[in-house]
Structures are given as C-alpha cells and as structure tokens.
Amino acid sequence: MSTLATAPVGTPAPTPTTVSTESRPPTARAVLGRTVWTLAVVLISVTTVMPLIWTLSTSLKPEGEILSSYLQLVPENPTLANYTALFTDGPFGRYLANSAIIALGGVATNLFFGGLAGYALAKLSFRGRGVVFSLFLGSMMVPGIITMVPTFLVLRRFPLVGGNDLFGEGGAGFINSYGAVLIPFAAGPFAVFFMRQFFQALPDELGDAARIDGASEFRIFWNIYLPLARAGLAVLGVLTFQAGWNSFLWPLIALNDPEMLTVQVGLAGYVNEYQTEYGPLLAGTILASLPVLIVFIFAQRYIIENFAHSGTK
C-alpha cells in the first residue's frame, strides 16, 4: 500500500497520552507527543489538500509543461489556455449553467416544500401525523438503485409532457429536460425530516398567540416560524446545493442530450482511458469544484457542526 493512504491509519496511537497533559508543565514525553501529533496532522493535511493544489497547478500549465515538468508545483509559464479551451472547444459553459439551474432549483423547492412539510409535521396537530413521518423516515432507508429504472420510466411516460399523449405514449416525457432531475428530488424526505427537527425545537406558544389573533396557518408558518428557522434553512440550503451540484448517476441517466449535460457528467467525458488531455480535464475539475468549495468555505462551521449533531442524535 502507498504511504499516502496508510499515513492516517498508523498515526492515531499517540493521542490519548497527549490529550490530558496539556495543562501540566511540559515533560519530555509531552513534547515528544506534541511533535508526533503535529507531524501526523500536517502529513494527513498534505494528503488531503496536496492533490487539489497539484490539480490547480497542473491546470495552469501550458500543454508542453504538463507532462515534462509534472512534479513542478509552480508553473513556469502559467496560462489560462486550458480554461479557455473548455469554453471554446466544447459546451462547458452550458454544462455549468445546467448544473447551476439544477442545483439552485433544487435548493429553492427543497427549502420551500421541506420547510412547509417539516413545519406541518412539527407544529400542526392532525390525525396521521405519525404515519406520514414514519413513511418519510423509512423512505430515506430505501437505496436509490431500486427506484432507478422505474423512475426513469415514470418520467418518460409522464402523460401530456414532452410530446406524450394522455397515456404517456409518443414522446420522451420529462427525459432530457430539467424537470427529469428537478421533480423527483424537489422535496426530498431528508429536507422534510431536517426541517421538522428544526421546527420542533421552537416553542408552540408563538403560533398559539397568532392563532388567537386570527392569523391563517400559512401566515403563522411564513411570518413567524420560517424567519426563526433561518439557520436551519441555511444549512439545508448548502447541503442541498452540494448534493445537487455533485450528483452524477441520475443526471447521467436522465439527461443525455449534449446540450443538457451537467458539469459532472460533462467532466466525466473528459476522462479517456487512452488519450486523456490532462490540461482541460483538470481545469474542468477546478471549475466543477469551485462553487461547492466556495460555499463550503463560507458555511463550513455550520455544516461541520450540523453534521456532528446529526451523528450523535
């Protein structure tokens, strides 16, 4: 096995001794422990971050330099040629636009419908609430692979859409349109579940007071509870954006018109077993990663903390 992959495995042993010695005067052992710790985390960080930096550096090299000086981290003659080639030689701009529409559309629908449904399950009392909630929870356990083929057929045979008649014959239905990717995931069970957990932590009294004043249920949701759930909406929005932007298998199946490809599917086409042009491939990789990386940098504290909570509950 490689040093890259095994470095994290072999290193955790020294931690238990170093954790408790922090407040005492440093002994030789503590200093040694701290050194080993620093070495270990730096080494792991290099393995997680270095490939990205190397990718960025390669994407900025001119064609001749990529292979000849492949170990050189700083390009001798940095150029944006690989990036411009993406847009002039292929519809990469179109790919980016398609992904943006799909990811942002998914955020909008999941926040709205997930918020509405999560609110109903958390704050409204009605018969069947427990059943609906269990169904949503259970549906998160169903692996996507089982619904893949039938969902394709449902979208393709959807009546009165995309040239189909009432019986779903004659056209391609939603296939090869944004709807094919947006509609099945417009209000995922995760969004409903996530927002329900969030609304449940808010007090009931706010709604009761407004109800006495004669406010409609939608106004109570929209004007009182939704603003209080802003933090939850932000986290859900970021997670949904990442999932939509990064999704691969479903867009690969549902969108195969060259004009409709997402950036992930388009990028996958640049990997060629026999003759890969690394310059454009790695430039495309940077462009495909940039939006989620930027969102992550701004939201990382909330994302990581939310993740930690979901694991312990």
Binding site: P51, W54, T55, W245, N246, L267, V271, L282, T285, V292
Partner: peptide, 14 residues
C-alpha cells in the same frame, strides 16, 4: 466537498 467525478479526475492524474 468535491464531487466524486472531480475526485476521480484528480485521482486519475495522481
């Protein structure tokens, strides 16, 4: 944070 496709492209090069 990166997609599996972007990760795969990076590793294809690595």
């Amino acid at each position: 944070v990166s997609s599996t496709v972007a990760t795969a492209a990076i590793w294809f090069w690595l």
